[in-house]
Amino acid sequence: MDERRVLLIEDEPNIIEAIRFILSRDGWRVDTHSDGNTAMDAVLRRGPDLIILDVMLPNKSGYDILNDLRAGDDTREIPVLMLTARGQKKDRELAEKLGADKFMTKPFSNGEILATVREMVG
């Protein structure tokens, strides 16, 4: 598959806009999803190469979704980049414990997120 696909699970419209801009410019196809409850369905439906997952989501937290992802047979191997605006040490630790591949604190630089995404699916 030529086109690499990212699923961005995030509820802040402006941040979605920003990340979509950065990644699509780099040749990624960016699908987005904003609701926690239905995030797993979106993952299964889209079958992304990479998931960018926000922690603070409506109805279901990013950690719970990550947990589900790592428990599902079809989703276990998908690399996950966690984004959080809380940025405390314990958030990072929790994310790593739950099986996040990378963890980034908002705000991030555009180059940083691009490099990380490239590295993860490289």
Partner: peptide, 21 residues
């Protein structure tokens, strides 16, 4: 603090991204 952090970082994320763009 965690909440404040979140509330501050969220707009700052957009600002930073778009200003970089």
């Amino acid at each position: 603090l965690s909440q404040i952090s979140h509330e501050l970082r969220t707009p700052m994320t957009s600002i930073r991204s778009f200003s970089e763009i």
